Simulated assay, not measured.
Amino acid sequence: MMTTFKKTIGAIALAGVSIVAVAAGVQAAEKRPTELAPLGEPPAPPDNPTTPEKVELGKLLFFDPRLSGNSAMPCSACHLPELGWDFPDKISLGYPGTTHWRNSPTIVNTAYYGNYFWTGVSKSLEAEARTAARGGVAGNGEDDMMEARLAFIPEYRKRFNEVFGTEYPSIRDAYMAIAAFERSLVQRDTPFDKYMLGDDKALTKQQKRGMELFTGKAECSTCHNGALVTDQKYYNLGVPGYDGWETDELAQITFRFELLAKGSTEEKYRKWKDDPGLYFVTKEKADLGKFRVPSLRYTKYTAPYMHNGMLETLEDVVEFYNQGGGTNEFSKNKTKLLKPLGLSKKEKADLVAFVESFTGERLLMETPELPEYAPLPAVTN
C-alpha cells in the first residue's frame, strides 16, 4: 500500500502538479490546442506607422462618399458597421448601374492578413483601399478627380497637413489613412481568446466539445489554424456557382465584364458559367475555382458565407463540410482534403457553437459628421 502511494505522489510531481494543490482539490489548467492561438497586437508597416490622428482621418475618409466615381459610394457602403462590417447579401453592393460579383468580406481583423480580396490580388491594406476605390463595379473612382475633391475641403487640407505634412491632400496618403483606420478595427477579446489566455470558463462545455471536433474529427484546423484561424492558402471546395447568374441580367453582364477585364480568351468568355477565382491571378488551370481561406473571426455577424454567399448560415457551412464539400464547374480542381465527416446532429451543433466563440460583441460605430466643401483660398502674389 505504501509503495503504491509513493508511486502516485511521484507521478503527480513529474506531471508538474503541486501535491498541496491536489490535496486542496485544485485541478491543473486545461490543455489548449496547439493548432490555434490568441491574437496579438496588430502589425503596422514601417512606411505607414499608425497614429491616432491618422486613424481619425482614415475614419472620416472611410465613410466619405466623395472617394468614389459619383461621390455616393464610400467604403462603408459595402462594409456596414452594424451588419458585420460587410454587406448582408450573397453578392456585395455594386457601383450604381452595376452589381458586384463576389461576397463582401468583413474588414474586422484584416490588419493580420498577408493579402487581400478573395484571390489575394492586393498585398497590403493600402493597396486594398486603392483597388476598392477604383474598381469598376465598386468605387469606380479616378485618383485625380478624388484628389481634387479633397483639395476643396478645408478640414481635409488641415488634417492632411497635420498627419502627412503636405499642403494639399494626396490620394496616396488618403489610402494610407484608410488603411490605418482599418488596422484599428481589431477584436481580441473573444471567448476563444480569453480561453487561450488562461480563462478555463470562457468557453462553454458545448464549445469545448466543438473545439475538440474542430482540431480532431472535423479536421477544420487543417486550413483554419493559427491566431487568425486561416492558413491564407487557396482551395477549390466545390462551392456551387452564384445562382444569380442564372436569372439576373445585370449580374450576367457584370460576370462577362469581369471575365473580359481580367483576361479571358473568347472561348472561355463564352463558355465559363462560374467564377475562375485564383486563375485570374496566376493563369494556371490548376487554380481554377480556388479562393483564399477566410478567417473565422467575427463570422457570427457576417452571413452569408463563401466567396459568393451561397451558404446562408454557419449551420449550412458545417453541413457543407460534413458532406465533403460540393461541386462546381471547376470541380476537377477540388481539394483532396475534403471528405464526408459523418458528424452527428449534436456534433454539428457543438462545432457551430465553437466557431461562434471566435466572435465577441459587435463592433459598432456611428457615421461621423463629414467636413464640407469650400472655395479654395485666393492666390496672392
Rank of each mutant, 00 (worst) to 15 (best):
S124W: 11
R172G: 13
Y112W: 08
K123W: 07
G139S: 05
A174R: 08
M145R: 09
R157E: 01
A138F: 06
I153V: 13
A138N: 09
R159I: 01
T131N: 13
A148F: 11
T110F: 10
F117I: 02
Y112G: 01
N103H: 15
R130I: 08
G120V: 02
E155G: 01
V163I: 11
M145G: 02
N115P: 01
T166F: 04
T99H: 10
E162Y: 03
E167K: 14
Y116C: 02
D144Y: 11
S104V: 08
G139T: 00
E167I: 10
G114W: 06
E142D: 06
V121I: 09
E142L: 13
A129Q: 14
A138G: 05
A179L: 08
L125Q: 14
Y112Q: 05
V121P: 02
Y112A: 02
R134D: 11
R172S: 13
E142F: 12
W118C: 08
T110A: 09
Y168M: 13
I107K: 09
F160M: 03
T166K: 11
S122G: 08
E162F: 00
E155C: 00
V108L: 12
E128V: 00
A111W: 06
T166Y: 06
F164P: 10
A177N: 04
I178T: 12
D144L: 15
E155K: 01
A174Y: 10
I153Q: 03
I178N: 03
A151V: 07
V121L: 10
A133K: 12
K123C: 00
L150P: 04
Y168E: 12
H100W: 14
A151N: 03
G120A: 04
T110Y: 06
T110H: 13
S170R: 14
L150A: 04
Y112R: 01
T131L: 15
T110P: 01
E147S: 13
W118E: 05
W118N: 11
N109F: 08
S170C: 12
V137N: 15
A180Y: 02
S170H: 09
G141M: 07
K123H: 09
R172P: 01
W101F: 15
E147M: 14
G165L: 09
P105K: 03
T110L: 14
G141W: 02
G136I: 13
R172D: 15
F152Y: 11
Y156W: 03
W118M: 11
P154F: 00
A151P: 00
I178S: 05
R159V: 00
F152G: 00
Y156E: 01
S124H: 12
E147I: 10
R102Q: 15
N109Q: 10
N161K: 11
A174S: 15
R149L: 05
A111S: 12
E167V: 14
S122A: 15
A111F: 10
